[in-house]
Write a protein that binds this DNA or RNA. Structure first.
Lengths: 112, 112
DNA sequence: TCCCGTACTTCTACATTGTAGATAACCGGA
DNA sequence: TCCGGTTATCTACAATGTAGAAGTACGGGA
């Protein structure tokens, strides 16, 4: 999509994971959420680059964790769904719903 | 998707248009179906190259119209959804359903 | 103090998918 | 034979999908 108007399949999945996670959304948890729900392995690199692109479009925003908590390792980068992202998610859902309208679950697909 | 395991957003749309059209699915009608349902302009080139790729994966098959009908212009290339394509469509639907499970239409998306 | 394991993020690279527009093929009629 | 209408093919490039190695940061133990 030259103009970034529509969401890609994986972008949509990432955004939905974000919604489920709420306040606790950062790289590792997002990855886990997707693997559990979609039942599919995802590399951490795939998650981050998608997140970066979504941020560049203004669909999500991110900020690093404040050091208050006593835990080891590098700072976490928390992601948050922005209004534009929610809109885009809504739009994707509608398009798919329109494309499916009138089709029964299995019957239609198997009819031919 | 390096291994062609999952459907892209546009591929899914094209496949669904195919299901709606049934016997009458060829380049131009597929394009029109998408434009009407998705409410979005699509170039004919976009449709064909996606169709070619889907065919290469075995998700759809195609055959040219027999010349019996009296109509002008170049031969039509009719497309048909193959079992593998239907399966893939099913799988895409399930993944998205799993990703959305537990989320209310608007409420959740707007809560943050 | 230095090294190490843990917890995360960044970076680099490349394959696949998305998209458009120009061009070619074919048909019947003027 | 030239022409307009109908449809498919080709070429090119931008955006998205995906992986894995490398880098950063912190606290604890030797």
């Amino acid at each position: 999509m030259p103009k970034g108007d529509f969401l890609g399949a994986f972008e949509e999945i990432v955004l939905l994971a974000l919604v489920h996670l709420g306040e606790d959304a950062y790289g590792m948890t997002i990855r886990r959420e997707i693997e559990e729900r979609a039942g599919r392995a995802v590399s951490i690199g795939a998650v981050y680059s998608t997140l970066d692109r979504l941020q560049a479009k203004g669909f999500v925003s991110s900020q690093y964790a404040n050091g208050s908590e006593a835990r080891r390792g590098r700072a976490r980068r928390y992601f948050k769904l922005e209004p534009e992202g929610a809109k885009s998610l809504e739009r994707s859902k509608e398009i798919l719903a329109n494309m499916r309208r009138g089709l029964e679950p299995e019957s239609e697909l198997t009819k031919s």
